[in-house]
Amino acid sequence: MYYTHLEDYVQQFYTRLGIINPTLLNFEEIAFRMGLKVFYWEEKSQALFIDGRYYIFLNKNQSPQQQWQDFCHELSHVLFHIGDQFHMYPLFREYQEYKANNFMYHACIPTFMLEKLSINNHTPQIILQLQQIFNVEYDFAYRRLTQYSNKLIMQRMHNMTTLNMR
Rank of each mutant, 00 (worst) to 15 (best):
F13V: 00
C72E: 00
M88S: 03
E137I: 06
H106D: 03
D139L: 10
N120G: 14
P64H: 05
I50S: 03
L25Q: 01
Y14T: 01
R33I: 00
I30C: 09
D70W: 04
P22M: 13
T111N: 06
R53T: 08
N26W: 08
V38W: 05
L24V: 00
E42M: 08
E97I: 15
H122S: 13
E42V: 06
Q67K: 12
Q12M: 09
Q147L: 12
F71I: 03
A100F: 09
R33F: 00
L25G: 02
N59S: 09
N150L: 15
H87K: 15
K37F: 00
Q96G: 11
I126F: 10
H122G: 10
L58V: 08
K60Q: 05
Y54T: 03
E28I: 12
N120I: 14
N135H: 12
E115Y: 02
R156T: 11
G52K: 04
Q11I: 01
M157A: 14
F92N: 15
Q65T: 11
R93N: 05
H77A: 07
Y89I: 13
T23L: 04
Q66I: 10
L17K: 04
F103S: 07
Q66A: 13
F112V: 01
T111P: 01
N26E: 10
S149Y: 03
R156P: 03
N121M: 04
R53M: 07
I56P: 00
F112H: 01
P110I: 01
E42A: 09
M113C: 13
P64W: 06
W41D: 06
D51Q: 04
L145Q: 02
W68P: 00
H81F: 15
Q65M: 12
I50N: 00
L128C: 10
M157W: 14
T123P: 01
Q132S: 15
N21W: 05
D84C: 08
P124Q: 05
S149F: 02
N121T: 05
L17Y: 06
F13K: 02
I126L: 11
Q85D: 07
E97W: 15
Y54W: 09
F32E: 15
Y98C: 12
F92M: 14
A100N: 08
E42R: 07
N121C: 07
I126G: 07
I19D: 04
V38K: 05
K116Q: 15
N102K: 12
N121D: 10
A107K: 02
T146R: 14
K44Q: 15
F134P: 02
F103H: 10
M34E: 05
H87P: 06
Q96K: 14
H106F: 08
K44I: 15
E97K: 15
A107S: 11
P90V: 14
A107G: 09
Q62P: 03
I82L: 14
Y98H: 14
W68R: 02
I119G: 08
N101D: 13
G35W: 04
I119F: 11
K60C: 05
N135I: 09
L58A: 03
Y138D: 03
Y55W: 13
Y105V: 04
F13G: 00
F103W: 11
L25V: 04
E28V: 13
T123E: 02
K44D: 14
F57C: 09
Q96D: 08
Y98S: 12
E42H: 08
P22F: 13
V38C: 08
N120K: 15
K99A: 10
F49P: 01
T15G: 02
S45K: 01
